[in-house]
């Protein structure tokens, strides 16, 4: 079944590539969208069929709840509010990556990456990277959303030593990841999350509201890298491929 699922995931990946290709030209855009929907449906159904996936009740509730909210928001939103909606959606991918990384950290057995307190070293590194990028994407997108929406001032927020602070926090982040790899402490894991969340805020506040569209594209790219990081952690090629596709294409769009 695992091999079969991996093969179906390849089909999903191809459908995603065709979706991006289709969306690049006006005549094929709608067809591209349908490819994307088909790829996603296939990926989700295949995952549900995996032997280690059971307890459909909560899965169906979560998909129905999230799907319902997403449907209402997407149908109601004014088209003039699109940039902030995109920013809000990117933040969700980031936060979702944080949750998956945390679920994997607290229950490594379900992903075959080791046991509690004995997670494989490589998996810990990959997990930390997915966690950090996800957290930065989350708060960074929230700030971008606030600036576009007008909830927070669009003016750049700058202060003395800003770059030095960001650099110091970046170094601290790497140090914490090394400490996590050495000791696998849950406290350190959540400290990494917290630090990356603050980094996301600090990275986006100095940028003015007028530059936000570029930042939103950049965050789109980040959400892809976060998905890829989680894909490495979970040994899931679909996540790795899709994350790379989104990360690379997002970098072009910005």
């Amino acid at each position: 079944m695992e091999n079969f699922a991996a093969l179906i995931y390849v089909i999903s990946s191809v459908l995603f590539i065709l979706a991006l290709r289709g969306l690049s030209h006006p005549e094929t855009a709608r067809q591209g969208l349908n490819f994307g929907i088909a790829g996603m449906a296939l990926a989700i159904f295949t995952t549900l069929l995996l032997p280690n996936v059971g307890g459909y009740f909560w899965i169906v509730i979560a998909i129905a709840l999230g799907g319902g909210i997403g449907t209402v928001i997407a149908n109601k939103i004014e088209m003039t509010a699109l940039p902030q909606l995109m920013a809000a959606f990117h933040s969700l991918v980031g936060l979702s990556a944080v949750f998956v990384a945390a679920a994997a950290f607290h229950n490594p057995e379900s992903f075959g990456i080791g046991t509690q307190d004995d997670i494989h070293l490589v998996s810990l590194i990959e997990m930390s990277i997915g966690l950090a990028i996800g957290a930065i994407t989350f708060t960074g997108s929230l700030i971008a959303w606030g600036k576009l929406q007008g909830t927070i001032s669009g003016k750049p927020v700058t202060f003395g030593g800003q770059h030095a602070l960001n650099a110091a926090l970046g170094v601290l982040l790497i140090l914490l990841i090394i400490i996590l790899c050495a000791g696998e402490s849950a406290v350190i894991f959540w400290m990494i999350a917290l630090l990356a969340l603050s980094l996301g805020v600090l990275m986006i506040i100095p940028i003015g509201g007028a530059d936000m569209p570029v930042i939103v594209s950049m965050l789109n790219s980040y959400s892809g890298w976060a998905a890829a990081g989680i894909g490495f952690t979970l040994h899931n090629n679909l996540l790795i491929i899709t994350g790379a596709l989104v990360g690379a294409s997002g970098a072009i769009l910005s």
């Binding site: 999903s12 995603f16 979706a19 991006l20 969306l23 690049s24 030209h25 006006p26 855009a29 591209g32 969208l33 994307g36 790829g39 996603m40 990926a43 989700i44 995952t47 549900l48 995996l50 280690n52 996936v53 059971g54 307890g55 459909y56 899965i59 979560a62 995109m86 959606f89 969700l92 991918v93 979702s96 990556a97 949750f99 998956v100 679920a103 994997a104 229950n107 057995e109 379900s110 992903f111 939103v216 594209s217 789109n220 959400s223 892809g224 976060a226 998905a227 989680i230 894909g231 979970l234 899931n236 679909l238 996540l239 899709t242 994350g243 596709l245 989104v246 294409s249 997002g250 769009l253």
Partner: peptide, 26 residues
């Protein structure tokens, strides 16, 4: 087509749901 393409890549990056479903179904 920049904005629709971004919207679609955003939706596609949510394929991370696969990882979340496995964790929830464990």
């Amino acid at each position: 087509l920049h904005t629709p393409l971004m919207a679609v890549t955003n939706a596609i990056s949510s394929v991370i749901i696969v990882g979340a479903v496995i964790a929830l179904g464990a």
